[in-house]
């Protein structure tokens, strides 16, 4: 049995079938990147996994604990959310708390740790993302890249089994993307299990153990970065890679 098993995940927005019976297994320590054209449900997929969206069908299992993703039971949803953490495109740091308080928040309110213990963990995590000198800064005082690094530290401090990342660099100025990618690379090498939606193809090629190509709500291609980028078997995938300039296209002109 895989570390994380996702089964039969379907989601509709109105008549639009965004996710179409998705099955996905993720192994411990794996970094799985989801790529695909916009509007194909990449973000929706990971938002369904922690119930920020409610799917029509689907389940997720962490080792032997299985969750029905359509449940309305509030307790069950809270329990599910403790297995995962999310890094958002817009960082979503709590704007009225400083960097350290942002990381301590979940530890104190959700994990019910004492203030001292929470602070110690928060300091350790914030140091790892290289933000120890800015623990008193509020989100408004930090650049986008710095905010995202704090957000990553916040997610990791909760010790999630599966880390969900929803286009973590898409809202950043180009010169700030590098520092966040470096942070993600470091946490990937530390053995965290990550499901990542991104448009940074070069980064995916270097860091992801596995790449999934999603189109029209279905997994069209699934393989190592080498398989996906170097010898794409699928025609749709090939077209996509040409568009994002990862493949030489025959009729490519500006």
């Amino acid at each position: 049995m895989a570390f994380v098993e996702i089964r039969d995940l379907s989601k509709k927005f109105g008549d639009n079938q965004v996710l179409d019976h998705i099955d996905l297994d993720i192994e411990k320590g794996q970094v799985v990147a989801i790529i695909g054209p916009s509007g194909t449900g990449k973000s929706t997929l990971i938002r369904c996994l922690n119930r920020l969206e409610k799917p029509e069908s689907g389940s997720i299992s962490f080792h032997d604990q299985k969750y029905d993703l359509t449940t309305k039971n509030h307790k069950e949803i809270l329990s599910l959310r403790q297995h995962t953490e999310m890094v958002f495109q817009q960082f979503n740091l709590l704007k009225n708390k400083n960097a350290l308080e942002n990381i301590m928040e979940g530890l104190v309110t959700v994990k019910k740790l004492g203030k001292e213990e929470a602070r110690e963990i928060a300091l350790r995590e914030i140091d790892k993302v290289g933000m120890l000198d800015r623990i008193n800064h509020y989100p408004a005082h930090l650049s986008g890249g710095q905010q995202q690094r704090v957000a990553i530290a916040r997610a990791l401090s909760m010790d999630p089994e599966l880390l969900l990342m929803d286009e973590p660099t898409s809202a950043l100025d180009p010169e700030l993307v590098g520092e966040v990618l470096l942070t993600i690379k470091t946490i990937a090498q530390e053995g965290n299990t990550i499901l990542l939606v991104t448009h940074e193809m070069d980064f995916v090629r270097k860091v992801a153990d596995r790449v999934i190509f999603l189109e029209n709500g279905k997994i069209v291609a699934d393989g190592t970065a080498k398989e996906i980028f170097d010898k794409p078997s699928n025609e749709r995938l090939r077209q996509f890679l040409v568009k994002v300039k990862m493949l030489e296209g025959s009729e490519y002109n500006i």
Binding site: L52, N92, N96, T109
Partner: peptide, 29 residues
């Protein structure tokens, strides 16, 4: 901001905790 509420939910906060720790202080301001 909806993102602030989602951040709390993603951390695993209950609806009451989200209200008490995020919505109330930010709306209060």
């Amino acid at each position: 901001d909806k993102g602030q509420i989602e951040a709390g939910k993603a951390l695993g906060m209950s609806n009451f905790q989200v209200f008490r720790r995020i919505i109330f202080p930010q709306a209060g301001e």
